[in-house]
Amino acid sequence: MQVHNISKQNSVLNTFLSEIRDKSIQTDAMRFRRNIERIGEILGYELSKSLQYKTSTIETPLGNCNIDLLENDIVLCSVLRAGVPFHNGLLNYFDKSENAFISAYRHHKESPESFEIIVEYLSCPNLESKTLILADPMLATGQSMTATYKALKPFGKPREIHLVSVIGSNDGVAFVKSQFNNNTHLWIAAIDETLNSKGYIVPGLGDAGDLAFGEKLQH
Rank of each mutant, 00 (worst) to 15 (best):
V3L: 07
V3T: 10
N5F: 06
I6V: 13
I6A: 04
Q9N: 14
N10S: 13
S11I: 00
S11V: 02
L13K: 14
T15D: 10
T15L: 15
F16A: 10
L17K: 10
L17I: 04
R21Q: 08
K23G: 00
K23H: 10
I25N: 09
I25T: 07
Q26W: 05
T27C: 12
R33D: 00
E37H: 11
I39A: 13
G40M: 10
G40Q: 10
E41H: 11
G44L: 08
Y45F: 15
Y45I: 02
K49C: 05
S50E: 15
L51M: 14
Y53I: 02
S56W: 00
T57P: 00
E59C: 03
D68S: 13
E71G: 01
N72S: 14
V75M: 04
L76H: 06
S78W: 03
V79C: 07
L80C: 05
R81D: 04
A82R: 10
G83N: 06
G83H: 08
G83Q: 01
V84T: 07
V84L: 14
H87D: 01
G89V: 00
G89N: 02
L90W: 13
L90A: 15
L90G: 09
Y93R: 12
S103R: 05
A104T: 01
Y105P: 03
H107W: 13
K109H: 13
K109R: 12
E110K: 15
S111P: 01
E113T: 08
I118R: 11
V119P: 01
Y121L: 04
Y121R: 05
C124N: 07
N126E: 07
N126C: 09
L127M: 04
L127W: 09
S129E: 12
T131I: 02
L134D: 04
L134P: 07
L139V: 01
A140W: 06
A140Q: 07
G142I: 06
G142R: 11
Q143W: 02
Q143D: 06
S144T: 14
M145Y: 12
M145V: 14
T146W: 09
T146G: 00
T148C: 14
T148F: 02
A151H: 04
P154V: 02
F155N: 03
G156M: 04
P158N: 10
R159N: 12
R159A: 13
E160R: 08
E160S: 13
H162R: 11
S165Q: 01
V166S: 04
I167C: 08
S169K: 13
S169C: 06
N170L: 12
D171Q: 14
G172D: 06
F175P: 00
F175S: 06
V176I: 15
S178G: 06
F180C: 00
N181D: 15
N182Y: 05
N182F: 03
N182R: 09
N183T: 10
T184R: 06
H185Y: 09
H185P: 00
A190P: 00
D192G: 12
D192E: 11
S197M: 11
V202D: 02
V202G: 05
V202F: 08
P203F: 13
L205E: 07
L205D: 09
A208N: 05
G209R: 08
F213Q: 09
Q218R: 15
Q218I: 05
H219T: 05
